Simulated assay, not measured.
Amino acid sequence: MHKKFKIPFALTILAVALVGCSSNKPKVEKIKPSPLPKLVQAKNLQQVFSQHISATNKKDPLRLQMAVDQGVIYFIDPKKGTVDAFQGNKQVWSSQIYKKGTLSAGLEVGQGVVVAGNQKGELFALEQSTGKVLWQAQLSGPIITPSHIQLGRVITVTNDGNVYAHDAATGQQLWTYKLPNVALSLRGQATPVQLDPNNVLIATANSYVYGIDVVSGVPRLQRRVSVAEGRTDIQRVNDIDGDPVMMGQFMVTTSYQGQVTVTDLQQQQVVWTDNASSNKRPEVTRDAIYITTTDGKVVAYGLLTGQKLWENDQLLHRNLSNPVLLGTDLVVGDFDGALSLIDPVTGKITGRSTTKGEVTSLRVVDNQLYVSTQKGALSVWQNR
């Protein structure tokens, strides 16, 4: 049995920097983040919702993203063990689901349930309208990324590489699928996403993506989408921690120390690939792909051509979040809570707003931007 070691992303960068040093006491030069560029007549966003929850460990940022459905916002407080629902600034309900330990993944909402998980592998499903706990299941390992709900199934990936499907209404375990082991990987996991109406897409630390039948648990697709090179195990770490994105028949993936890749699943062939290290979900339109790299670049590619449309290096080493499109603006967050607005056509930074703490998750739902930070600042923004 192979033991799988999870290492924090920041520690990986440090270890890579130390490779090849001959001194007994190597001095690691601290990389300074680029200062935010000065802006003239800058655009900004309007904040329409704000709440504060417990902060998470800065060395282990978790996917504590907010969920929204029919105008109701759902979020967890990781240390208090609560799930809250708000409509506007009015609290609809609050439910204490866990008193010991830390809720570590959430939330996903759909088909009448709200789903969260913790580091002990416990999965909770709450009634969406009331917050009442409907069922609870014990899984084999920590749950550090949100589940996915499809065809009445709750699909969850644990940190030890198991995929579970539970009946959304009853909690009955319907099937499991074991992903391949890897010896070393980042502390992270991509969220399961819908491949098509019948299958779910799972990205892994071994550079493969798997398409699994939601009803039966039978694998329908297996493709390697990235390759890393290096002399050491750390240099060859090649996780897919950013969620894959489907755009019609095209699957877009990014990987750490690997490539951004577009695969035509209908033709079963790679359309193009380009070397780029990213552990964040790409933003994809019918014409373009936008990624943030691990060293802080924001890059735009043509979806079908792979042509690099532009590259912005003004935010280097600022621990950028995933990029998202909000109306006519591309938005990225950073370690200091800055939300930079970028022209998606030219790559020029055009505006800025600020929240508190390192931005760990950005989502856009119904033309509103949902922001979560490591310090527990939750906020919703819209264009002015």
Rank of each mutant, 00 (worst) to 15 (best):
G302Y: 03
K308P: 02
T328P: 07
D334K: 02
L330D: 00
D329T: 10
K308A: 13
L315G: 02
L303R: 13
D334T: 02
L325R: 09
D313Y: 05
G306I: 08
S321C: 09
L309I: 14
G306L: 04
L326K: 04
E311C: 13
V298T: 15
Q314V: 06
S321T: 05
L303T: 12
N319Y: 08
Q307F: 11
F335E: 15
Q314F: 06
V332M: 05
D336Q: 10
L326V: 13
V299A: 08
V299E: 06
L316F: 04
L325F: 08
W310C: 05
D313I: 08
G302W: 04
L325P: 02
S321V: 03
G333I: 05
L315T: 11
L320P: 01
G327Q: 07
R318V: 08
G296P: 03
L326A: 07
D329I: 01
L304T: 13
F335Y: 10
T305E: 00
A300H: 03
Q314Y: 07
G337E: 04
T305I: 06
L315N: 03
G302F: 03
N322W: 02
V298M: 14
G327V: 03
G337N: 09
K308V: 15
Q307C: 07
G327K: 11
W310G: 03
E311Y: 06
Q314P: 05
K297R: 15
L304S: 12
W310S: 08
V332N: 00
G337I: 03
V331Y: 02
L303G: 09
G306D: 02
L325V: 05
Y301S: 13
G333S: 10
T305Q: 04
H317C: 09
T328K: 14
L330F: 07
L316I: 11
R318S: 11
L330N: 01
V331H: 04
L309M: 15
K308N: 12
N312V: 13
E311V: 15
A300K: 03
H317R: 12
D334W: 01
L330C: 09
L330H: 04
L303V: 13
E311Q: 15
G327S: 10
T305A: 00
A300L: 05
D313G: 10
P323I: 09
G333A: 06
S321M: 05
Q307R: 15
